[in-house]
């Protein structure tokens, strides 16, 4: 039985927990605690250890969806969670004071995973704050010499999160063809 991991990371309030809930087959497991520090100004509760969801694949395989805690003081969890991940989903909250700096921080912090797999970036809360625009994110990525998909995402929308996951999969292998499961869980090329 194959066990695989997909990692969601990003700053506090970026929508990691919500994004996992959008695509998880089972109700997600959360480790929320009442926020006591600066986070309290953004939301009443925050993830302190991890968020966990799962996608059941054919043949009893599982794709575990892990969300890292947003606060830097829990960063010891980041390496533990990201080891063996098939790729990285970075969510950036556009409504934070310096989202471009947040992006740099998380890309640098997860550099090892990104180099060995692929990364996609979803920008959330653009309805609350339109700037910085996507072009500014692209400039940051160019400076860091990272080529990665970046687009706006509403973490509550399954379609948006699904497109982000698809972007990651096709970034890992652009020649990937879609296969459909039959009733027995076997695959057929579409």
């Amino acid at each position: 039985m194959g066990q695989h991991k997909l990692i969601f990371t990003g700053p506090v309030g970026a929508g990691k927990t919500t994004a996992i809930a959008s695509i998880s087959d089972d109700p997600p497991v959360r480790t929320d605690e009442a926020a006591t520090d600066m986070t309290k100004q953004r939301k009443p509760e925050t993830t302190v250890a991890l968020d966990y969801g799962v996608m059941h694949l054919p043949g009893e395989e599982k794709l575990h969806l892990y969300g890292t805690p947003g606060q830097e003081r829990f960063d010891f969890m980041w390496d533990i969670l990201s080891t063996g991940g098939i790729g990285l989903m970075v969510l950036i909250n556009n409504n934070r004071p310096d989202p471009l700096k947040d992006l740099c921080f998380f890309l640098q912090r997860f550099e090892t995973l990104i180099k060995s797999t692929a990364v996609v970036i979803g920008i959330t809360q653009t309805d609350l704050k339109a700037e910085p625009c996507l072009q500014q994110y692209h400039k940051v990525l160019n400076k860091m010499n990272i080529r990665a998909p970046v687009f706006e995402v509403d973490a509550r929308s399954r379609n948006d999160v699904s497109l982000l996951v698809q972007a990651l999969l096709f970034s890992l292998d652009p020649g990937l063809s879609l296969e459909l499961e039959d009733k027995d869980g076997k695959l057929e090329t579409a």
Partner: peptide
């Protein structure tokens, strides 16, 4: 590649 296809199939 099979894994990626299965995830893709599932998410689609």
């Amino acid at each position: 590649v099979g894994l990626l296809r299965r995830i893709l199939s599932r998410i689609n």
